[in-house]
Design a binder for these strands. Structure first.
Lengths: 223, 223
DNA sequence: CTTTTAATTTAAGCTTACTTAAATTAAAAA
DNA sequence: TTTTTAATTTAAGTAAGCTTAAATTAAAAG
């Protein structure tokens, strides 16, 4: 049986898979703010339900079923985010935590209806791809971290990490939103902080900020 | 702490208060499909949290806090129903069970936003009043059960009970919706079934159906 | 007023999802 | 290769929200 708790485990596992498609139990415990012992417990249950591959002392993998379940959770989450942002008008930095609750309480029927109403969006308000009904992901535009851009390069915001509300709220305040154009004006080597132009305003941003904004470089056109 | 389970208890208690503003533990158990022993257990907890007034072997009352909490649950439920029906286009007979899940997973902030977006509706898709932010109920139009109408009386549907999906789905199919006009053409005494005119079509409905539809009688005008 | 019936409570036990503390294992460092 | 460290598991225990069965109480019927 799928409970809120199990759904959270599957989501966390999915989002933290490494290059070998594995996660350490360790990581799951941290992300969910629970003890390692609790994770061991639950992994045995998820394994019995054919959702994860679990062997003592080894890293965790998802089964085929587990992958499908987790992707569907991502789908629910991102469709809710899109809906809350576009239709209800909830600001960028608040949609994540509302969607976090709603994703456990909505039938596939409802999600499909909402998706239809939104005209089958491909990306959520943070630029993350929304899995389709068949759980396939749309292609994403090539992008680089803002922190890796060079002086005088221009680009368009295509994705931001939604790891922290304060971060989202801050970048939103300085005019950084999806598709916003910006230009790198200075980079200070000693702390890698940047001076950027967003619209017609100048801002200083730390490396940590720039690490979480993804840009599609544009060569032509003015800012 | 407010859990899904506690919220369900409070909702059921609120919806089943008698003329003395009391409910028997018995009734709660039936409505929630759980044992009486479980109800006793939970009532003690709710009492400790100052949500219900509980004394051994006596009927249950809500405290001031309990009333507020329960009314807010009703508010959440009905705003979700309205939203799902009007904005997402979910049919009449399906909104109830979706709202039943969503009502536990939405912040007051979100509910207020949705309410604003809907332009502060007073009644949900079944004609039930939606408590405002201050939890006050809008005034309802005077209405009578369809089953109590006389031959040749005309009226307008102002509310239906949403106790059963099949019922809602059926009456929707025969053209009965909020504000629909109808006229009683015949009443068969032996089973109290009725012959009614809805729009320009005739239908036979059982007493059980007619018991769950509420009508505002209209004297003038044609059908 | 006493008996019967129905509602309620108590008691013991279960499952889920957690906790802490101790034991074990695997991986990294010496 | 041995030792140390870090990750993981086991064991024992807890709280929430249920269950069934037995005991108690209140209300209804005689």
């Amino acid at each position: 049986m799928a409970t809120v708790s199990k759904e959270d485990y599957l989501s966390v596992i999915f989002k933290n898979l490494d290059d070998k498609n594995e996660v350490k139990a360790n990581v799951i415990a941290e992300k969910l703010s629970i003890s390692n012992a609790a994770v061991t417990d639950m992994l045995k249950k998820l394994s019995n339900e054919d959702l994860v591959i679990y062997e003592k002392y080894k890293s965790i993998k998802l089964t085929e079923n587990g992958f499908l379940y987790a992707k569907n959770m991502v789908r629910r989450h991102r469709i809710w985010e899109m809906f809350l942002h576009q239709v209800v008008g909830i600001p960028w930095d608040k949609v994540h935590e509302e969607a976090e609750k709603l994703e456990h309480s909505s039938s596939d029927y409802l999600i499909n209806k909402i998706e239809e109403m939104l005209n089958f969006p491909e990306f959520d308000p943070h630029g993350d791809p929304i899995p389709a009904k068949d759980l396939k992901l749309p292609k994403q535009k090539k992008s680089v971290k803002l922190s890796l851009m060079k002086i005088n390069q221009k680009g368009r915001v295509v994705r931001v990490n939604d790891f922290d509300n304060e971060f989202l709220s801050y970048i939103s305040k300085i005019g950084i939103e999806l598709n916003a154009k910006l230009k790198v004006k200075e980079i200070r080597e000693f702390d890698k902080s940047m001076h950027i132009l967003v619209g017609n305003k100048d801002w200083n941003i730390s490396q940590k900020i720039a690490d979480n904004i993804f840009i599609e470089i544009i060569d032509k056109g003015n800012l």
